[in-house]
Design a protein around this nucleic acid. Structure first.
Length: 888
RNA sequence: GGGCGAUUAGCUCAGUUGGUCCAGAGCGCUCGCCUCACACGCGAGAGGUCACUGGUUCAAGUCCAGUAUCGCCCACCA
């Protein structure tokens, strides 16, 4: 076992435990999975964070959940594998390194050239990459680090190339000129899913387009006046009376002087602006469609860097913003600017650069999505793949059912370079293994002259993650054993970007497997979004993020994990502030101290079996119930429910009652045999409970486990408790509850009468129900210390002592003679309040039972229960009334 | 414009198939306790017309319809 202090500290100190325990696990190879194992597999693929990433709360929550699942399954008899790794994150990483190179050495990537720059990025990764994986270790994640992957690892490259070539050969990859979302800062195309719309104040410019005969003009409204330089038409609604006579005629495009047609198109909204819209097919998606419909030419006026090109005439060379100013000024000078309105509108910006997206025509690579989407849709509709919470299935399906082709080429240097080479006639050839320059083209035989310059979208490698990490396309033992996986936990933002695409890839590429084995995971769990204390997203720009590592330093990893799970109800967003981690911290400390106390009595293996004493039977029964609840919760990924049940059981059952009640026996205040059975019971319950807690609180529980007598193996590899060994003992639970009722009632009286704990009291009980009498006779030794009772008389029909307080409990009345201490007014108030409460409840029950409809139509057992309730309430009321009468 | 969430104690949230977990938990608050594991603790309390309006039902935080407020996603009007 690991080296550890001889004595447990008074308070749990995570810092003294976590590092040591984690090393202990690693040195024992505790996280490693074996493909040759006979156990059934259970696999989780980590959503690979960006290699540049730093752990945030979303990661902390997501990876805590995955670790809980994998630890539970590992204990529950599965060959559990959690594969970690990072994503090369093309744009993000390239941007980080470019920025650093510029700041530190004042060089641009163009200065280094492609090879030089890519070498710099690799260098950066060696030094700074995978930092986040180290942070995951701090959280306690039990990933199989021996299988760590990076999306640009050699075998991953091989997988990506293979996938591309296969799709190419099936005709699912094509190249073509399309209107794409262009990021002028990063100078690359980005996919539809990588842009966002932000509301901004803008202007609507009304521009006059003259008629060629000089007889007047037509006014169009636009938010992007500079794009008029690329206009190739103007459109109006066919039913618009104002313009009907002009349809088919030519109009003069100002500044450029060319004549463009006026066309009728029913996509034009007559209500907006002037009802006439300029058509710029080269720089607007809607216009691109309109232009195609009316055979209008496409004019591209932009260079990749956002400056205007030769198509813009005299404006060539100007940056976009400058061009806009000049166009507006020139139009104004010509008297063609009718007016300017201020409007609020949405501007498309790039997720990465936050620069305004310019739609422009360019040659790109696309994946045909519709054929791939079909099996992915069927997977969810058939129930093969389920989402948790279920509602996210709809989001997934909506996207897939309306999916558009995926632009997979990026004009970057960092990433998987597209495996396509061209001969001197520009005839392409795709190949998994690189084609040498000068080697013959496999089809034409002519020499290869160049490779495609573009790299693939990052998601074009991460969509292969579930199987490429296991060695695909090779048929490795890992792939055979661990694919498909069982559980995926991720964020809702990447249902389209990642989840849907992984499913498509699985069905398309794992064609050596039977249909139902291709789906990459059984369950896709969409976890909660972590918000700040007042409900805003945590973000760098707001500076409202909470650093998980800082919280781990302050509260401990287990506390962070546990608090997050307790605060997060399935998929429901959570508002988080720093002090909320105290919840987990307190619980950890409670467990630490309770176990510390138990261990003081557990020197050596007990010489007995768990006992027959009521309290022993009770806690064993409760423990069994906890095993059932927690197992069920974890099997169904109800993390919060399991955590809450453990909290309740450990604190309220085990600590508040069992430990308190067992102290007498444990301290040797009874027979030796009594002590041994108590010790055996305690050890049994602790052993079960620490195992149940382990997935949530791995460090603390592993540490404490090492101190339990008779534990040879590590907790991480211990067996999950079986509930069959701990059957429900209903009579023990019922009896214990009766005893508890009496104790609570007495404590209540003591508190309201201000009887200090140092004053022991005398108690008399009149058990109307003989069961209560029996239980109290048996449990007198249990109850007495719990309520500081000096002597307890249990006798049916006893007369109430003068000057005593009375408390009605189920099945009887408890009298507490408090001559000299009792405040009669307080007692009168207490009884009056109790009287009122009972009268109200009785009224409700009577009314209900008087309702014939209720009696005749409700289920018989419901009616019967209501009758019993009323009866018991009436009996309680009678007792209270008697007590009040005696007081006078 | 379309879709989806949320609205329960001062705060953060639980409340499974409608009827003893129709009112819960943690924090905070009040009162009393350094009771030989824990003051990161122990015991006892106070505190809510379950957003609003209708409806279904013998019976509704719990089902249905609508309203309001807040939030998220998708689409995007030049």
């Amino acid at each position: 076992m690991s080296t550890k202090p001889a004595e447990l500290a008074k308070a749990y100190d995570p810092a003294a435990v976590e590092g040591r325990i984690y090393e202990f696990w690693e040195s024992n190879d505790s996280f490693r999975a074996d493909a040759a194992s006979d156990k059934p597999p259970f696999t989780i693929m980590i959503p690979p964070p960006n290699v540049t990433g730093v752990l945030h709360m979303g990661h902390a929550l997501n990876n805590t959940l995955q670790d809980i699942v994998i630890r539970h399954r590992r204990m529950a008899g599965y060959e559990a594998l959690w594969v970690p790794g990072t994503d090369h994150a093309g744009i993000a990483t390239q941007a980080v390194v470019e920025k650093q190179l510029f700041q530190e050495k004042n060089i641009r990537r163009q200065d280094l050239g492609r090879e030089g720059f890519v070498a710099e990025v690799w260098k950066w990764r060696e030094h700074h990459g995978d930092f986040i994986l180290k942070q995951l270790r701090r959280l306690g994640c039990s990933c199989d680090w021996s299988r760590t992957k990076f999306t640009l690892d050699e075998d991953m490259v091989h997988a990506v190339m293979t996938a591309f070539v296969r799709l190419w050969e099936k005709g699912l990859v094509y190249r073509g000129a399309r209107l794409v979302n262009w990021d002028c800062t990063l100078m690359t195309a980005v996919s539809d899913d990588e842009i966002e719309y932000v509301p901004r104040k803008g202007s609507l410019w009304y521009i006059r387009y003259p008629l060629p005969d000089g007889s007047g003009h037509l006014t169009v409204a636009t938010t992007r006046p500079e794009t008029m330089l690329g206009d190739t038409g103007v459109a109006v609604h066919p039913d618009d009376e104002r313009y009907r006579h002009l349809v088919g005629k030519k109009i003069v495009l100002p500044l450029m002087g060319r004549e463009i047609p006026l066309v009728a198109d029913d996509t034009v909204d007559p209500e907006f602006g002037t009802g006439a819209v300029k058509v710029t097919p080269g720089h607007d998606p809607a216009d691109y469609v309109r232009g195609a419909k009316h055979s209008l030419p496409v004019v591209n006026i932009l260079n990749p860097d956002g400056t205007l090109n030769a198509e813009a005439g005299s404006y060539a060379g100007l940056p976009r913003a400058e061009a806009r100013k000049k166009v507006v000024a020139d139009l104004d000078a010509l008297g063609l600017l009718e007016k300017i309105e201020e409007i609020d509108h949405n501007v498309a910006v790039s997720d990465r650069s936050k620069d305004a997206i310019e739609p422009l025509i360019s040659e790109q690579w696309f994946v045909k999505m519709e054929p791939l989407a079909k099996p992915a849709i069927a997977a969810v509709k058939s129930g093969r793949l389920v989402f948790a919470p279920e509602r996210w299935a709809k989001v997934y399906l909506d996207w897939l059912e309306n999916v558009r082709d995926w632009c997979i080429s990026r004009q970057l240097w960092w990433g998987h370079r597209i495996p396509v080479w061209y001969d001197e006639d520009q005839v392409p050839a795709a190949s998994v293994t690189p084609l040498e320059i000068g080697s013959p083209h496999p089809k034409t035989g002519k020499p290869i002259v160049r490779q495609d310059e573009d790299v693939l979208d990052t998601w074009a490698s991460s969509w292969l993650w579930p199987f490429a990490t296991l060695g695909w396309p090779e048929h490795t033992p890992d792939l055979a054993k661990f694919y498909p996986t069982q559980f995926l936990s991720t964020a809702r933002e990447i249902i389209y970007l990642w989840v849907a695409r992984m499913v498509m890839a699985g069905y398309e590429l794992l064609d050596h497997l039977p249909e139902d084995q291709r789906c990459p995971f059984d369950v896709c769990y969409i976890n909660a979004t972590v918000l700040d204390g007042i409900g805003r997203r945590m973000s760098k720009s707001l500076g409202n993020g909470i650093d998980p590592i800082e919280m781990i330093d302050r509260y401990g990893a287990d506390a962070v994990r546990y608090s997050l799970v307790m605060l997060t109800r399935e998929g429901q967003d959570v508002k988080l502030s720093e002090n909320r981690f105290e919840l987990g911290q307190r619980f950890c400390n409670k467990i630490w101290n309770a176990t510390r106390f138990a261990l003081a009595n557990l020197d050596g293996v007990p010489d007995a079996s768990p006992g027959d004493a009521l309290e022993d039977r009770w806690i064993l029964s409760r423990a069994g119930e906890t095993v059932r609840v927690v197992s069920h919760a974890l099997e169904n990924y109800h993390f919060h429910d399991g955590a809450a049940e453990l909290y309740r059981f450990f604190w309220n059952d085990l600590c508040d009652w069992y430990l308190e009640v067992a102290k007498r026996r444990l301290s040797g205040d009874g027979t030796a045999a009594d002590r041994e059975t108590a010790r055996a019971t305690l050890l049994r319950v602790l052993s079960v409970t620490l195992r149940l807690l382990h997935p949530y609180l791995p460090f603390l529980t592993e540490e404490l486990w090492g101190y339990l007598p008779g534990t040879e193996e590590t907790l991480i590899r211990a067996e999950w408790p079986a509930d069959v060994d701990l059957p429900r003992d209903e009579s023990a639970e019922a009896d214990f509850d009766r005893m508890r009722d009496v104790v609570t009632a007495i404590r209540n009286v003591r508190a309201s009468m201000n009887v200090p704990p140092s004053t022991a009291i005398e108690v008399l009980v009149d058990p109307e129900d003989p069961e209560l009498g029996r239980v109290l006779a048996e449990t007198r030794d249990l109850a007495s210390p719990m309520a500081r009772i000096e002597s307890m008389t249990v006798q049916a029909g006893l007369t109430r002592p003068a000057g005593s307080a009375a408390a009605v409990v189920r099945g009887g009345t408890v009298y507490i003679p408090l001559a000299g201490i009792i405040d009669l007014d307080v007692e009168r108030d207490r009884l009056a309040k109790e009287h009122e409460r009972l009268v109200n409840l009785i009224g409700g029950a009577e009314k209900k039972l008087a309702n014939e409809n209720f009696v005749s139509r409700a289920k018989p057992e419901v009616v019967e229960r209501e009758r019993e309730k009323l009866e018991s309430l009436r009996s309680d009321l009678a007792k209270v009334e008697a007590a009040r009468k005696e007081m006078g």
